[in-house]
Simulated assay, not measured.
Amino acid sequence: MSKTRTFIAIEPSPDVVGHAERALLRLRRLADNVKWVERGNLHWTLHFLGEIDDQELYDVCQAVERGAAEVEPFTLEAAGVGAFPSQSRPRTLWIGAGAGGEAMELLHSKLQEQLEPLGFRGENRRFVPHLTLGRAGRGLRPAETAALAEELEKLVDFPAGNQVVDELTIFASRLRREGAEYTPVAHVPLAG
């Protein structure tokens, strides 16, 4: 039986994508050893499920429908550029969530409640809504780290647009030499 690398996400609006591209322009020139996310791959991850088979995929779709039915559509403000684990040690660069972030946390929680009985455990850390812009490699030079940290400080209040969140997308992910390729498997509406 074949397995599919799968995750659940919210697709960003064109407004948010446009702002993300402006943030990327400011960051991209500062570091060579960062794998930047391509425009078509930008997304707000809710759950990464890993490799699952076809029966599990069916069960996941059913669980996502139940979880999504418990949350009303909401408006999400994309705001601020930051990094994990910190601005001074940027490994994952992202755009954060302002207003509407609590609704995304609720959505994440409702999905987790439905996915746990299927064997999908949540992460041991608190869920932080974010849209990944890039991932820095281990070979990030000190000068690049410093330049990124300085620019992140300037972008802490970066306004990155708004979007209505009224559906989720379950994606299949294929890793290729050129980068990841994401294919929508299902679109699941929120309540209402």
Rank of each mutant, 00 (worst) to 15 (best):
G80W: 11
A83D: 05
V37T: 15
K35P: 09
L25H: 15
V37P: 05
A31R: 13
N33L: 06
G40T: 09
E70C: 11
N41G: 13
P14F: 14
E102V: 02
A78M: 03
R26A: 13
L25W: 08
A99F: 02
W94C: 01
A97K: 00
Q62V: 13
G50L: 07
W44V: 00
L25M: 12
A79N: 01
G101T: 01
A31W: 11
G96D: 09
A63I: 07
V16H: 06
L76A: 00
P90L: 05
I52T: 07
Y58W: 06
L76N: 01
F48W: 09
C61K: 14
F84H: 02
G40M: 10
G96C: 06
H19D: 10
T75W: 10
E21N: 09
A97F: 02
V16Q: 10
R39A: 11
V81D: 02
T75G: 03
G98W: 13
F48T: 06
R26H: 06
E72T: 10
G80K: 10
E65W: 09
V64G: 00
W94K: 00
V64N: 01
L25G: 15
T45S: 12
G98S: 07
E65D: 05
E51M: 10
E102N: 07
E102M: 00
W36R: 08
L76W: 02
G82R: 09
R29W: 05
V71C: 04
E102L: 01
E56L: 06
P85H: 04
D32L: 09
S86K: 03
R29H: 11
P73Y: 13
K110D: 00
L42F: 15
A69H: 11
R66T: 07
L57E: 11
V64Y: 04
V17W: 12
D32P: 02
K110Y: 04
E56C: 01
Y58T: 14
G100S: 06
A20P: 10
P12R: 11
L76Y: 02
L93S: 04
G80F: 15
R89A: 07
S109V: 03
G98T: 03
I52V: 15
R26E: 10
G18T: 12
A31E: 10
P90V: 01
V16F: 13
Q112T: 14
R26N: 05
P85R: 03
H43F: 12
V60E: 05
T75M: 08
S109M: 05
E65H: 11
N41Y: 13
L57Y: 01
A20Q: 10
S88I: 06
I95R: 00
S13K: 05
H43G: 11
G98Q: 07
G98C: 09
S86L: 05
A20S: 11
F48I: 08
H43A: 12
Q87C: 05
W94F: 12
N33R: 15
E21L: 15
F74V: 01
R91S: 10
N41E: 15
P14G: 08
G40V: 09
A78F: 05
F84A: 03
D32V: 02
I52A: 04
L46E: 12
L107Y: 09
H47M: 07
G67F: 11
R26V: 02
D32R: 15
D54W: 00
L49E: 11
A31L: 08
R26T: 01
H19K: 04
A23W: 04
K35Q: 14
S86A: 06
D59L: 14
V60F: 03
G18I: 04
